[in-house]
Design a protein around this nucleic acid. Structure first.
Length: 455
RNA sequence: GUAGUUGUAGCUCAGUCGGUUAGAGCGCCUGAUUGUGGUUCAGGAGGUCGCCGGUUCGAACCCGGUCUUCUACCCCA
């Protein structure tokens, strides 16, 4: 039976060109992570469902991909659950495992499971796909990669400074101009406290976070529906556009009666002091009081990165969480981490044409196949190139020249090599540079030297 | 979860009011060109019009369902 080939909703194939480009991004990120002492970690695609549920809120639980139990999975389902025809209940009753939803919870689970073997502070990075049963949308897929770096077991704000530098260095290497926005949850808590709406902190910050997206009116409306006096907003608006230090001073004055708030101010002051010493290449650091970030497990510094000159949401984010491992029974371990939105970074680099032209060039040289003894001669030369670690290939059949040349073009091959009657007779190779069109006759040693320079 | 949108050749897309044999560009193949690609010219192959059902003498076109694409909201990367 013929089946029309297709892939599940929200998933993608990555052809060779895309993989090259994606690896360029991942590789750049990985190198910088390792330079700052972060070590790689990989966790299973599947986690036990109980590890995942309840960690991402009620909506998050609905977005988990569950993995059906093996064997006779209906046997032990309680009759009332079975009869209820409640898909949510039933799905949890017959699924003991679920696909990884992010990299942070598996990391927390790993830290708790291996706490006796880990030397704290523990710095790890992780680049793996995650899955969400979400509705696909612009820049949103059901399977996508996350690139996280976290350090746990230290309260020092030196870590925050270092993570800021990682953002700066990665995006500098990728040729992207970015703004790194920094805020602190304790400041937001302090502002809510001063305004007398501490119990509405989450709603307040979520609304304020949208300020530049939906404007003053939109935020006012949202605050009113939440039963919060929109007056709160004024302080945020007044402090917009100030220099980082001025803004911090203003916030300090405003929060002088809030202990939490002043704690946040102290943290921000210390972080900015470190950042004055830290060497940043080209990223701008901006203290953005309206920055909130969705996840409510953040407790201190929060980060978000925006690309300059493109319409795109954040391409990175993160923050400090005081008790991530607490949910698995290990208390008192503070952590801070950042994440790179690789898929969005890809789109931005594509839009701004910032991928280096040679990322997709895999094969340096192609031998044209003239068949018979010429094929054998070319095959012999090919061995020499391979032994010299040069990426090269011989076209596998003596098809028409036009076809072989087109193949070279399609694969972005830099040099095409002809080994035919003349060349074999004279022990030479004709080498054509496919970019300049230039053509030279070389012997094999000269060719190896030429191609070595290329690589 | 809510609302809209899309699906026709390998790719990007036309297709009039429901009417005979469904088109274009690009790509592919063949030839001009038996050792030179990205230029040109000539010819050719390639289709279950997403899928299932309905209305009709007749459906790519109208109706229902379903899957899919993209998008806004919620939420998020």
């Amino acid at each position: 039976m013929k089946v029309k080939p297709s892939i599940p909703k929200g998933t993608r194939d990555f052809g060779p060109k895309e993989v090259y480009k994606r690896n360029y991004i991942f590789g750049t990120i990985r190198k910088v992570f390792e330079k700052f002492g972060y070590q790689p970690l990989e966790t299973p695609t599947m986690e036990n469902l109980e590890t995942l549920t309840g960690k991402y809120g009620e909506e998050g639980d609905q977005l988990l991909f569950k993995v059906l139990d093996s064997g006779d999975y209906l046997k032990d389902v309680k009759p009332d659950v079975y009869e209820s025809k409640d898909a949510k209940k039933l799905s949890f009753a017959i699924s003991g495992k679920g696909l990884r939803y992010d990299l942070t919870i598996p990391f927390a689970r790993f830290v708790v499971m291996n706490q006796n073997d880990i030397a704290f502070p523990f710095k790890r990075y992780q680049i793996q796909p995650v899955w969400r049963a979400d509705r696909p949308q612009k820049g949103r897929y059901r399977e996508f990669y996350q690139c996280d770096a976290d350090v746990v077991g230290t309260n020092s704000l030196l870590n925050e400074a270092e993570l800021t530098q990682i953002y700066d260095e990665v995006f500098t290497k990728l040729g992207l101009e970015v703004i790194i926005k920094i805020n602190n949850r304790k400041l937001l808590a302090g502002l809510a406290e001063v305004a007398g709406v501490s119990d509405q902190l989450v709603h307040l910050t979520v609304a304020i976070d949208k300020l530049d997206k939906i404007g003053i009116e939109g935020v006012t409306k949202e605050l009113v529906t939440r039963g919060i006096n929109p007056e709160v907003m004024h302080f945020f608006i007044e402090s917009q556009g100030l220099e980082n230090k001025e803004k911090l001073a203003k916030v300090k004055e405003h929060l002088k009666h809030s202990q939490t708030g002043l704690q946040g101010v102290a943290e921000m002051e210390m972080l900015f002091n470190y950042l004055e010493i830290a060497h940043l290449y080209r990223a701008k650091v901006e203290f953005d009081l309206t920055l909130a970030r969705g996840l409510n497990y953040y407790t201190g510094t929060i980060f978000e990165v925006k690309a300059v000159g493109v319409e795109m949401g954040s391409i990175g984010g993160g923050g400090r969480y005081d008790n991530l491992t607490g949910m698995f029974g290990l208390n008192g371990v503070s952590g801070v981490g950042i994440s790179f939105g690789a898929e969005r970074i890809y789109d931005v680099l594509e839009e701004l044409n910032l991928f280096p032209p040679d990322v997709t060039q895999a094969t340096t040289a192609l031998f044209i196949n003239f068949g018979g003894e010429f094929e054998k001669a070319a095959f012999g030369y090919l061995q020499k190139l391979h032994m010299a670690d040069i990426s090269a290939e011989l076209f596998p059949s003596d098809d028409k020249m036009a076809k072989q040349m087109k193949y070279a073009n399609a694969k972005n091959v830099h040099y095409v090599i002809f080994v035919g009657e003349e060349e074999v007779k004279r022990q030479k190779l004709t080498v054509k540079n496919m970019i300049t069109g230039e053509q030279n006759e070389l012997n094999i040693e000269q060719l190896v030297i030429l191609l070595k320079q290329e690589a």
